[in-house]
Design a protein around this nucleic acid. Structure first.
Lengths: 109, 109
DNA sequence: CGTGTACGCCTAGACAAACTAAGGGTTAGA
DNA sequence: TCTAACCCTTAGTTTGTCTAGGCGTACACG
């Protein structure tokens, strides 16, 4: 009913997830933790957003996944960036930079 | 059907519209032109997004509106920022700055 | 005079993305 | 034993933006 979190990540979640996989495969939970930590708790990644995003991106060929064990011995699904995923990350990053610069330009006017 | 423009403005349109009214009332068409010009044509404001956004914001008390004549003698609906609208603009600007800084932090990692 | 073009506004419907709010199972430790 | 952290899943809702039309007016130009 009431919205507390207001789609703060709209349009950037894919990019952030792709980015966090750039340096190697991670599982969902780890991706969420990483993003929260890197953003100093400004970004909070809801599971209900994250997992569907992962499935979506895998379906689009940007990621592959497989079950494996974490370093603490738990089963988890690890996601790995594909070549197409890297390209997508680059494209989204360019586009994001361009957009935010434009918005900033308006705000400075 | 196919999406060409991908919701590029998602979440920022309200802020941009409020910002463009900061220096005085404008009508819808003028707001769109202004945003396109200020952003050097990076942002394109679709009428189907803009007008519903204006109605929404008026309903929320951020804007008031009235019919008046443009300097070229046409009838147009002019929107004016309310006190609440100014507060909203300030809040959204703070939040946007915070968010983009966080995203940038992740991208730089 | 007709006709195109820029000016202006309006709206229904589709759609994607993110969210809320559950549920489930596992491991470790108090 | 029981709690908390770890990890995944998904149905359903909400929202905003977009597409794709429609309407009417003023003015310039041939």
């Amino acid at each position: 009913m009431a919205r507390t979190n207001s789609d703060q990540l709209h349009g950037t979640l894919d990019m952030l997830v792709l980015k966090s996989l750039e340096s190697g495969p991670l599982h969902g939970y780890a991706i969420a933790l990483r993003l929260e930590r890197l953003s100093k708790d400004v970004l909070s990644v809801e599971e209900g957003s994250l997992y569907p995003a992962l499935y979506r991106m895998e379906a689009r060929g940007w990621l592959t996944s497989e079950w494996a064990l974490t370093d603490t011995g738990r089963r988890a699904r690890f996601y790995r960036l594909t070549r197409a995923g890297r390209a997508q990350l680059a494209a989204e990053t360019r586009s994001w930079t361009r957009l935010t610069a434009a918005v900033q330009g308006v705000l400075n006017a």
